[in-house]
Design a protein around this nucleic acid. Structure first.
Lengths: 200, 200
DNA sequence: AGCATAATAATACAACTGTACTATAAAAGG
DNA sequence: CCTTTTATAGTACAGTTGTATTATTATGCT
């Protein structure tokens, strides 16, 4: 046998090359050849880890999702006041820095790609709506939210705000900075909460 | 000379065929051949009206924009109370029925496509941010908005909400109905306004 | 040492892409 | 009527695509 190779690590390496290609040229540039070139691999080598292009793209997308979820988990495990916790988690859902920007970019491209390409399986939710809903329930049950709010509708609004901010960051990153997006989002959560304590 | 043909009408006809192709198969399906087939034209005939694919796509996108703006103009010319007017205009910006749904779908695909393809020119804003901003200024100056709001930030929030709702309609039209999206948006504008008059 | 096997490479193939070019049909002008 | 011009059609070409197949390494195990 030849040198033993960590397949999972290699696949992640290829997935990251895929991200770069997509970031630079959109999903239309994500041909197996472009990805192989970016990863300094031959077509055959690439094919050794992903037999089909669809398989590769799907893996690359799942990796984005996993990383995002990992970041959220890291925030959740911190000891924070409800409002701070919620805000911090939500901030993980919009692209602030260069790295998360890349992930979001890739995520959008994939979402659109799979909307048409995926035959029937592969259909999956990104789970953001559920995350937002859980956060709002938490905020409400811990008594930090204004009274008389319809949780479902507030979920939908906040969910739309999140993806809208992310989309605007995606489309026009120069004019719409990450800091500004974060400010908007933070203020929105503030508005959602009781005004008794302005604990910033 | 052969039969005189209304070039503009023919171009619009081709543009609509382009929309259909994109709706069914995404931007990746929008090859000149697919579009020609959808329009029951030969490659040569198509080329007679659009010498290049990029030209065709750009025209098709501009047509979406023009139609949306026309719808907004129609609303603006109605005599309505400020809040109703604003709400109605905003509702034109999210896809409710099948027709506007198609337009938005096409718009998203184009936006993403041109983000990478357009060399340097073609860069254009969809003008939605400006529209939203004007609406909020109008709402504020007519005394219908709650006091103490930062107009710029409110613009950004509402703008993100609009595109977020549109995006969710785009991604998951079955589970996220147009009526529900409209309800969310209407309620958001309500919240933005003074509560003295619940004139629905 | 040498064989088996995993990793990589190279090439091939059919399908599709955008654009260019040539050919045909047909109708308005004189 | 016939020439001129426009709409349409058909074909060709070079490039890219995804996948399959074959060849070539090079390492680990016996």
């Amino acid at each position: 046998m030849p040198k033993k190779i960590d397949h999972e690590a290699r696949k992640q390496y290829i997935a990251k090359a895929t991200w770069k290609v997509i970031m630079d040229g959109g999903i239309e540039a994500a041909s197996v050849r472009n990805i192989a070139k970016e990863a300094n691999l031959s077509l055959g080598a690439l094919r050794h880890y992903f037999t089909t292009q669809e398989e590769l793209l799907h893996y690359a997308m799942e990796l984005v999702k996993a990383r995002c979820e990992a970041r959220i988990m890291q925030v959740i495990q911190q000891v924070l006041q409800p409002k701070q916790l919620v805000t911090k988690v939500l901030l993980e859902l919009i692209p602030i820095d260069k790295e998360t920007m890349a992930e979001m970019q890739v995520w959008f491209m994939f979402t659109l790609h799979f909307k048409y390409k995926q035959g029937d399986a592969f259909r999956q939710t990104d789970g953001i709506r559920e995350t937002v809903q859980r956060l709002l329930i938490f905020l409400s049950e811990s008594g930090n939210m204004k009274e008389g709010k319809d949780l479902l509708k507030e979920t939908e609004k906040l969910y739309a705000l999140i993806d809208g901010l992310a989309f605007h960051r995606f489309i026009d990153p120069e004019n719409f900075s990450g800091e500004y997006a974060a400010e908007i989002l933070t203020e929105y959560v503030d508005d959602l909460c009781q005004e008794e304590k302005r604990s910033n």
